[in-house]
Design a protein around this nucleic acid. Sequence first.
DNA 1: CTACTGATTTTTTTT
DNA 2: AAATCAGTAG
Length: 746
Amino acid sequence: MSNFLQSLNPAQRRAVEAKSGPVLVLAGPGSGKTRVLTHRIAYLIETLGVDPFNILAVTFTNRAARELKERLEVLLGAGRAHALAVGTFHSLCARFLRRDIVHLGRGRDFIIYDSDDQLRLIRRVLNEFKLDEKRHNPRTILARISSAKNELVSPAEFARLNRDPLDELVARCYLRYQELLREANALDFDDLLVEMTHLFSQHPELLERYQDRFTHLLVDEYQDTNRAQYTLIRQLSARQRDLFVVGDDDQSIYLFRGADVRNIRQFEQDFPEAQVILLEQNYRSTQSILDTAQAVINAGAKRPHHKRLWTENGTGSQVSLHEGYDQDEEASFVADEITRLIGTGEFPAHECAVMYRTNAQSRAIEEAFVRRGLPYQISGGTRFYERKEVKDLLAYLRLAYNPFDSVSLLRVLNWPARGIGERTEQELQRWAGELGMPLFQALRELEGGTPHAPFTARTSSALIAFTQLLDELSKSGHELPLTTLLDRITDRVAIREALKREYDPLEAEDRWNNLLELRNVATNYLNLPLEAQLSTFLEEVTLVADVDKLEQNSDKVTCITLHQAKGLEYGAVFLVGLEEGLLPHSRSSDDRDQLEEERRLLYVGMTRARRRLYLCYAFKRTSFGRANLSTPSRFLADIPRGLVKPPVRRPTAPAQSSMFSSRSVLGDRRSSPSDGLPRSSSRPRAAPPPEAISFFSGQRVRHAVFGEGLVISSKLVDGDEEVTVRFADRERRLLATFARLERIEG
DNA sequence: CTACTGATTTTTTTT
DNA sequence: AAATCAGTAG
C-alpha cells in the first residue's frame, strides 16, 4: 500500500479507499475534504492503476482546480497527472463544446456571454418588443430565464408551464433571447451547461464516448450543484457509476444561482448502493471557533445529516465580538487589530482576512487600510474584465473571432465615435430583424449595395466603413498572434487617441494602462498554437473568477465576500457588518429558505478561521448616503453567552446595556424561535429614544390603502421614520408618522 | 449627433 | 456617495 495514505485519519482513509461505486463524502468544514479528493485521485492512479486520462474531476472554482493539480503533482510527481481533466463545470463544458458542438449544428467559434452581455441582449429583446424597461426590469427577466435554464426548462416548456401574464412575457423574451444568442453564435454562462446536456441527450453515441473515457468522476462542492449540473453528472456516470462526490449541506450558499440542496440530500435515494462517509474531525479551527459556528448552524432548521464536529486543536482564544459606532469605526477597529496582530508576530498579513456580505462593504475597509498603509487585496467589486475600456477592446477582439457577435458589435458600433448615432443603431437593428439576419450580415448586404437599405448616403458610408473594419479584423483574427492582433486593433481603431479625447489626461492614462495590462495578460497565450490563442484567451477572460486571482502568500490582507470565501482558510478572520438587513440581507429576510441560507453563509465565514475569529457589527451604518441605526444580526443571538468575548462598550455609542444580559451573547432579546422571522413584540427597545426606528425588516404590516405588506427596511430620514414595505404589487417607501402602518402579529 | 446638467437610482451573493 | 439616466442646448 502506498505510503501517501499514512497521513490520513480512519474516516478519510475509508473515503479514499472506498470501493468503486457511488460515494458521498459529507465533509464538515476543515475536515480535510480537499485532501481526501486529491488522495482519492492519487489512489486511483497509483494503487488501482487507473489512467489519469480516464479521470474527470469537477471543482467549484478554477482556483480550486489549479490547487488540486498542484497538490497532485506533489503527491505523484510532476507531470504524472497531466492527462487528468480538472476544472469547473463551466470551463470543462466550454472545452468539450469547443470540440463537439458541431454535432448540434453550431460553429466551434462561439463566444461566451457574461452577465453584462446578457443584460445588453435582453434589453435589445425588450426594445424589440417595445416593452418599457421601467415596467419590466431586465434583470428580473434575465433571472427568470437563468433559473429556467438551470432547471433545463426550454423556452417552449417554460411557456407551457407558466401561464400567468408576467411569465408569458418572460416566455416570449426567453424565446427571442435564445434566437438572438444563436444568431450571434454565442452561449451565455447557463448555456454552457444546457448545451452540454443537449449534446448528450441528442447524441447517445457521443455520450457513450465520454462515458468510455471518463470512467472515474469526482465532484467537489456537491451541495452547490444545480439541476443542469446534476443532469450532467447523471449522464456521465450512468454506465460506470464510479462517482465520488464531496460536499457539505451546511455550506450550501448558492441557492440563488439555482443550486439545489436536494442533490446532496437525496444522493442516497438517487444511488441506493451509495456509500456515505462522514468527516467530522476538524483540523482547521480551535474548539472555541468550532463551538461558536456550530451554535449558529444548529439553531437553524433541522438537517438530515447532522454532523458533530470536533477537533484536537485545543480551545484557543475566545471569539471576539465587537460593536463599532459606524462602518468607518468598524473598519478602523479591524485595521488596528490586524496591525496589532501583524506587529506582535501572531499572524502575517496574508493570514488575515476580512469578510463581508456585499461587495459595497469593502469600501470602508479599503479606506481604513489605505489610511494605515496596510497592504491588502480585494477580490470582487468592479472586476478588471468588466471595466468599460477593457470590455470595449475585448469586444473588438471578439468580433475578430466571430463578427456575428451582435452584442459586441453594438457595443463598438459607435465607439470610438464614428458618426453612427442611436437613431441609426435602432434602424440597423430593426432592418436586420426584418431581414431575419444577424447584424453583421445585414451590414454586408448594405456594403454589397442592396437597394432597399433604409439609410441616408452619409450614414450608409459610415456603416460601410465600419463593416470593412470588421471584415479586416475577422480576416486577421485567425492568422495573427494574439498580441499582434491586439496592437493592430488598437492602432487601426485609434483607441489611445479616443481615450485621450473622452477623458481628462489622468483618467485617460489610467484606462490606457488597463489596456496595457490586458495586453500583458495576452502574452501568456503566445506559446499556444496560433489557432488556439484567441479562442482560449477569450474563453478564459470570461470564465475566470475574481477569487481565482487572489494571491496566496502575497503578504497582503485579503478582503472578500462570504460567498467567495468558501473553501479558503485564514489564521485570523474578521466578519464585518453582522447586522439585520446585511446578514441576513434584507432581500432574503422574507423567505425561510433564503434566511437559512444566510445563516449558512455566516457559518461558512466563521469556519474559515483557524485561530482567531472576530465578529463585528456597527451601531449605525450609512448606505446610499443615508445613515440608519442598525440592529445586530439575529444569528448572533444564537451564540450562547460565554462562548464569545462581549464587546467593549464604545463611548460614542449610546448605551444599550439591556442587550447583554442573559443567555445569549446578545442577551435574551427575542422570544421567537431562532430560525423564524423576528416579531415586533419580541424587540423590546425598552424606552425608544425620540429618534428610534420602530419597524424592522421581516415584520408584516397593514396599510389602509395598499393592504398587507412586508417591511423590507426602515430608516430615519430628517427625524421621521421612512419604512420600505413590499406590497403585493411593488415596494413602496412610506413615512411612518404619515402612513399609519398597522403591525400584524404572527 | 454630442456634450452638458440636473434628477434619479443604486446593493445581494457569482460561474 | 457615486453612477447612470433623461432632457436640452449647441
